[in-house]
């Protein structure tokens, strides 16, 4: 790896100052499970790594039934997956956070890093999108809030500007009779990158019909893809197999998969249909 300097600030302000200083090229460093691998491959050669793991705001999980869930950007997947309130109220997020790497990667990898790395295959991103998550970002000009659905703009590219730092992810409180689920396909049991993935979220009315729905996909477009039309097609319908198939067909049509070492475009499109249907079934089970 290229030499660099290392700083571990203990406040958001200090981190933003370091990141915004244009005299050097700086990069935030969370778990390093993407960044260090990419730096070894020569993809980046930052002059300064800003370790974000010592900043209290980035190192907390807070749940409140009316405010919802706040996940600091430096919280590891293992920490998140062990959190009782997250397990109870957001099992759809656990689906995604618990499959990012094996036990050792889990203890370093963060959802913040997964989102900021902006891989089309990032497993947590569709789960965050269907749960309606927003990203809280601090920068030289203050703080702003960005829907996760708008965060990734190209492979490896986000809306973050120079000096901006992801502070936390916020997820609205769970609404009654709602449920979410994320599923991916990989050829082995664990420790692999998604060939395709699908997240689904459903909310039911008192009469049992669908009042709101969101579907998002991974690894089938240049960015994680929110298929609004697939969710909208479910609104007002009963949560039946036929309705789920129809939504899955819309998701399939919206996918723009490519062929690569992990799978062909045709296989990916097929998988989108299967995974979307199953994720909807899983989300529906969790509405109960």
């Amino acid at each position: 790896m290229q030499p660099f300097t290392y700083q571990a600030p203990t406040s958001v302000g200090e981190a933003v100052t370091l990141l915004a200083d244009s005299t050097h090229q700086a990069r935030p460093f969370a778990g390093g499970t993407d960044l260090l691998v990419q730096m070894r491959r020569g993809l980046y050669a930052p002059e300064l790594l800003v370790d974000v793991k010592h900043i209290p705001e980035l190192n907390r999980i807070a749940f409140d039934p009316t405010a919802g869930l706040t996940i600091g950007a430096a919280v590891s997947c293992a920490w998140l997956c062990d959190h009782p309130a997250v397990r109870q109220h957001y099992p759809g997020l656990i689906d995604a956070a618990s499959i990012i790497g094996g036990a050792a990667i889990q203890r370093r990898a963060t959802l913040g890093g997964n989102l900021c790395n902006a891989a089309p295959s990032g497993d947590s991103i569709p789960a965050l999108i269907v749960l309606g998550a927003t990203a809280t970002v601090a920068g030289p000009h203050g703080t702003r809030s960005i829907p996760v659905a708008d965060f990734c703009i190209a492979p490896g590219k986000t809306v973050l500007g120079p000096g901006e730092l992801l502070v936390a992810l916020r997820i609205p409180p769970p609404v009654p009779r709602s449920g979410a689920c994320y599923l991916r396909f990989i050829p082995r049991g664990e420790m692999d990158i998604a060939v395709a993935g699908a997240g689904a979220w459903l909310a039911l009315g008192e009469d049992g019909s669908i009042t709101d729905a969101r579907i998002a996909l991974s690894a089938v477009a240049p960015t994680p893809l929110w298929v609004k039309a697939a969710g909208e097609a479910l609104i007002g319908q009963s949560p039946t197999e036929d309705a789920f198939k129809e939504a899955a067909a819309i998701a399939q049509a919206a996918a723009r998969p490519i062929s690569d070492v992990r799978g062909t475009a045709a296989q990916r499109r097929h998988l989108v249909g299967v995974l979307t249907r199953r994720a909807l079934q899983g989300a529906y089970q969790r509405t109960k």
């Binding site: 290392y6 778990g31 260090l36 050792a104 370093r108």
Partner: peptide, 16 residues
């Protein structure tokens, strides 16, 4: 183990 937690030492910096 880093503070008792399993990690890959190739993806941790010595300074950390």
């Amino acid at each position: 183990l880093l503070d008792g937690q399993l990690v890959n030492s190739c993806l941790v910096l010595g300074v950390e």
